[in-house]
Simulated scan of single mutants.
Amino acid sequence: MSAAPLEVKGLSAGYGPTRVIEDVSFSVPAGSRLAVLGRNGMGKTSLFATLAGQTRRYAGEIRVGGRDISGERSAARALLGLGYVPQTRDVFPTLTVEENLFVGLKNRPKDAIQEAYDMFPRLKERRKNLGSQLSGGEQQMLSTARSILGQPTVLLLDEPLEGLAPVICEELMAAFSRLAQSGDMTILLVEQRIQSALDFADNVIVLERGRIAWSGTPAALSADHVAVERFLGVGGLH
């Protein structure tokens, strides 16, 4: 498994007749990290849902590793290398941790779940617990690990730190960094903890009303105080 580039060209999408994403174009080189930032309600989650095939696409292309996946259903996109960890986590509450992980294996042998336990040892300790018995941080670890067991080449992480304690956030971000450094995945991150996202990313796009309003490096965004205040609603970054 090796990381694949992601290319998005002229993408417009939404829900029913309502357009949320308008003419969005960007590319993410294989193995790199992109942070997708913006205030609440500006289309970040809708963009990820569109990449994963969960909205109505009106125009544009989505390519993973050079292959156009725009017309594929969500399940097919997953098989073609697109991993998606949604904001809702979507852990199966009545299955054990181990059973949740088996779902993510697809056609891989069952002993491959050791990869999940190596990444998050806490999951091995909780392997017989039901999904409903896990803390929010443990559910996020489980959702992430389940997606990674499918060996995606492009991974979408939608607000993985939301509502979690700082120590859990640090543990998750360290795991995401190890994944990125392995060269096996291209990673896109939506995150409200702006500094955590900038510390992680190689490049940044900022959404405003479903369009890209700013793009560049984390250092450039940190230095652009006008853009930070206008598009992110904060006075400054450190």
Rank of each mutant, 00 (worst) to 15 (best):
Ser2Arg: 15
Ala3Val: 06
Leu6Gly: 13
Leu6Val: 15
Glu7Val: 13
Lys9Cys: 15
Gly10Pro: 10
Gly10Met: 14
Leu11Thr: 13
Leu11Gly: 08
Leu11Glu: 11
Pro17Asp: 08
Pro17Glu: 06
Pro17Ile: 09
Arg19Leu: 11
Val20Ala: 08
Ile21Tyr: 05
Glu22Gly: 13
Glu22His: 15
Asp23His: 13
Val24Asn: 05
Ser25Met: 12
Pro29Ser: 11
Ala30Asp: 07
Leu34Ser: 04
Val36Arg: 08
Gly38Ala: 09
Arg39Phe: 08
Asn40Cys: 08
Asn40Thr: 06
Gly41Val: 09
Met42Asn: 06
Met42Gly: 07
Lys44Gln: 10
Lys44Met: 02
Leu47Gln: 09
Phe48Ile: 11
Ala49Glu: 11
Gly53Tyr: 11
Ile62Asn: 15
Arg63Tyr: 11
Arg67Met: 14
Asp68Ile: 09
Asp68Pro: 12
Ile69His: 09
Ile69Ala: 14
Gly71Arg: 04
Glu72His: 10
Arg73Phe: 11
Arg77Asn: 13
Ala78Thr: 08
Leu80Val: 02
Gly83Arg: 09
Gly83Asn: 13
Val85Leu: 03
Val85His: 00
Gln87Phe: 00
Thr88Pro: 02
Thr88Leu: 02
Arg89Tyr: 01
Arg89Glu: 06
Asp90Thr: 08
Val91Thr: 00
Thr94Tyr: 12
Thr96Asp: 07
Glu98Arg: 14
Glu99Leu: 09
Phe102Trp: 09
Phe102His: 09
Gly104Leu: 06
Gly104Phe: 03
Lys106Phe: 14
Lys106Arg: 13
Asn107Trp: 15
Asn107Ala: 10
Lys110Tyr: 12
Lys110Met: 13
Asp111Ile: 14
Ala112Gln: 14
Ile113Met: 15
Glu115Ser: 15
Ala116Ser: 15
Phe120Tyr: 09
Phe120His: 10
Pro121Cys: 10
Arg122Val: 11
Leu123Trp: 07
Glu125Ser: 10
Lys128Ile: 07
Asn129Tyr: 03
Leu130Lys: 02
Leu130Phe: 05
Gln133Trp: 03
Leu134Tyr: 00
Ser135Gln: 03
Gly137Ala: 04
Gln140Ile: 03
Gln140Lys: 00
Gln140Cys: 01
Met141Cys: 05
Ser143Asn: 06
Thr144Gly: 05
Ala145Ile: 04
Ile148Trp: 00
Leu149Gln: 05
Gly150Gln: 07
Gly150Ile: 13
Gln151Arg: 14
Pro152Met: 02
Leu157Val: 12
Leu157Gln: 12
Leu161Asn: 10
Glu162Val: 08
Gly163Arg: 01
Glu171Tyr: 02
Glu171Val: 05
Leu172Lys: 00
Ala174Tyr: 07
Ala180Asn: 02
Ser182Thr: 11
Gly183Lys: 09
Asp184Tyr: 10
Thr186Met: 06
Ile187Asn: 05
Leu189Gln: 04
Arg193Pro: 01
Ile194His: 01
Gln195Asp: 05
Ser196Gln: 08
Asp202Ala: 04
Asn203Cys: 05
Asn203Glu: 10
Val204Arg: 01
Arg209Gln: 10
Arg211Val: 03
Ile212Thr: 10
Ala213Trp: 01
Ala213Phe: 01
Ser215Phe: 13
Gly216Ile: 11
Thr217Trp: 10
Ala219Glu: 11
Ala220Phe: 06
Leu221Tyr: 03
Leu221Arg: 07
Ala223Asn: 12
Asp224Arg: 02
Asp224Phe: 01
His225Asn: 06
Ala227Gly: 06
Phe231Tyr: 13
Leu232Ser: 01
Leu232Val: 08
Gly233Arg: 03
Gly236Ile: 03
Gly236Thr: 01
